[in-house]
Write a protein that binds this DNA or RNA. Structure first.
Lengths: 136, 136
DNA sequence: CAGTATCCCCTTCGATACTG
DNA sequence: CAGTATCGAAGGGGATACTG
């Protein structure tokens, strides 16, 4: 097999960057909240720590680094005392933002229904030892 | 603190179903691909196994069960030989579908840029001991 | 303030083998 | 065909302590 040099670079990026991996980074458990929280302008580390409910310092750092590496966030360090670091979305991430908020709004609209669906599923299925026979 | 009985049930579902968890299920690494693949009508197990690139049988099963439990997929068993099982989106999931495809299209448009951003990041940062060799 | 560094648990996930 | 069962490796993720 031989291909042109332009094809090769295309292929390299495809190999290095399978769709499922991009989606995993961009739509991961924490990434969504972080990107949404960072959308309204420059945001500082502790602001994010507060606004992303339930995230640990460690996970926040890890996710910020990964988003920065993927070119979705810029990290600006102001060499002051105390230090000040600002994160903001890149244009690419800004374009993503509307899909993310759509997702979040959908989740908010349907969380009740989902909780109910789970309750139903759990009450109908797998009554391991007790009364109530399994579904279907 | 006292609240009305309707508020209580609202709160229970909120507790049982935090936003970040919903997002994790719905926008998880595999969920996106599965939901998109299942969108074009009833889909059988092995169809999904083929169309969702890189997923293992185990992970597919686990994710299908979770999506079914959350009320996003219906699972229909036809008691034939060989067995035939069809999955399809619920109305709720169908509403989600457009956001998901938006996300996927975004990922496709930018995967090249992202791969490039990573390469840049890795070549500039953390040249630990050798010539720019770093994390994955 | 904005992180790093460790320790350690516990879930995720792939590989493999078996079944109605 | 459409799963389930089991195992073992990998890494996600919290808790805690320390630093420029």
């Amino acid at each position: 097999m031989s291909r042109s040099h332009t094809d090769v670079s295309q292929e390299v990026t495809a190999q290095a960057c399978p769709l499922v991996e991009v989606l995993d980074h961009v739509a991961g458990k924490w990434s969504i909240s972080i990107l949404v929280a960072a959308a309204h302008g420059p945001v500082r580390f502790t602001e994010l720590e507060r606004s992303v409910e339930g995230i640990s310092r460690r996970m926040l750092t890890l996710n910020l680094r990964r988003l920065e590496r993927d070119g979705l966030l810029t990290r600006t360090v102001h060499p002051t005392v105390p230090p000040k670091v600002e994160y903001r979305l890149t244009p690419m991430a800004r374009e993503l933002h509307s899909y993310l908020t759509g997702l979040v709004e959908w989740a908010e609209r349907h969380r009740g229904t989902i909780a109910q669906a789970r309750a139903d599923y759990d009450s109908t299925a797998t009554p391991t030892t007790e009364t109530g026979r399994a579904h279907q």
